[in-house]
């Protein structure tokens, strides 16, 4: 705003706040719907890529149950709950209850932060999860206990895999695993790179993880962006409520529409990446 207001030859853009009679919409609402259409195409392209990757994967090599369903479930509930609070906060504002809006929207922001917290925990869990190929031909799969590991030997919690297929389809439930120590000298050396064959479950590990990190990463960026916008309207820009309440309500509505979209993407991501 400041830039335009300082401009001496200031002019009003029509329908910036009030809806245009023949379209029934104010400018920002048209804008956000168009923007969301382009977002649909962005995530749509990624979902199409996911389908193509999965269909192209050789029989039995597409992983299942690599992600913790309960964490995904919790995150889904957190986001759906935040969608409810976004609507409630907008409705409160529409009725002129500013304090109530503040309260609901702060829950939205907390939900967003909770989501990001759980997501980063899941990311961390993948980055310390290793697949190790041993010289004796066995494959080990487990989480690195970094505190106990040294340069010459690694301590993992995990298990030896009998058949490689088992890597792609691990059992949903298994008993608490005891720490296992693997000496670096026991790890097989990759003939092409001359490096020990010990790789964590990062995006480079296989196409499933690649698309998982890309889609959830891009989604997380959207969560962060939405969170920043909602917070900015909630905090630093709250004085607009006194100067121009209608404009303020519009802003809350538009940011809410974006937030719903972000939630909706996750509602697709969850079954696609965690359950199927």
């Amino acid at each position: 705003m400041s830039l335009i207001n300082q401009n001496p030859s200031h002019m009003e853009i029509p329908y910036a706040v009030k809806p245009r009679p023949d379209t029934g919409l104010y400018n920002a609402k048209v804008g956000i719907w168009l923007f969301l259409a382009s977002e649909v195409m962005l995530f749509g392209a990624l979902f199409c890529s996911y389908i193509l990757m999965r269909v192209n994967a050789p029989e039995g090599t597409w992983p299942h149950h690599w992600l913790n369903i309960w964490m995904g479930m919790t995150n889904t509930i957190v986001l759906i709950f935040s969608s409810v609070t976004v609507v409630l906060s907008w409705a409160s504002l529409k009725m002129g209850q500013f304090k109530r809006y503040k309260f609901y929207q702060s829950i939205t922001i907390l939900c967003a932060l909770a989501f990001l917290g759980i997501k980063s925990f899941e990311y961390h869990d993948k980055f310390i999860h290793y697949q190790v190929n041993l010289k004796d031909g066995r494959i080990f799969d487990g989480h690195l206990q970094s505190a106990a590991s040294t340069t010459n030997q690694f301590v993992f919690k995990g298990r030896f895999i009998d058949k490689p297929e088992e890597l792609y389809n691990p059992p949903l439930e298994h008993a608490e695993e005891p720490p296992i120590t693997i000496a670096k000298s026991d790890i097989k050396i990759d003939p092409t790179t001359k490096q020990p064959m010990m790789e964590n479950y990062g995006p480079w590990h296989n196409t499933y993880l690649a698309i998982y990190f890309t889609m959830t990463g891009l989604h997380a960026l959207h969560v962060i962006a939405g969170c920043i916008v909602i917070f900015a309207i909630w905090g630093p820009l709250a004085k607009v409520w006194e100067q121009d309440p209608e404009r303020y309500v519009n802003r809350v509505e538009v940011s809410g529409l974006f937030w719903h979209f972000v939630d909706l993407v996750w509602i697709f991501l969850f079954p696609v990446l965690y359950l199927l």
């Binding site: 977002e39 962005l42 480079w204």
Partner: peptide, 24 residues
């Protein structure tokens, strides 16, 4: 509006291939 986002998706995927050694 509608055609550029898929290229943006493709660019992100190629950036992953380029920097993070993925294999999209």
């Amino acid at each position: 509006l509608l055609a550029f986002p898929p290229l943006e998706a493709a660019a992100v995927l190629q950036l992953m291939d380029n920097l993070l050694r993925t294999s999209f």
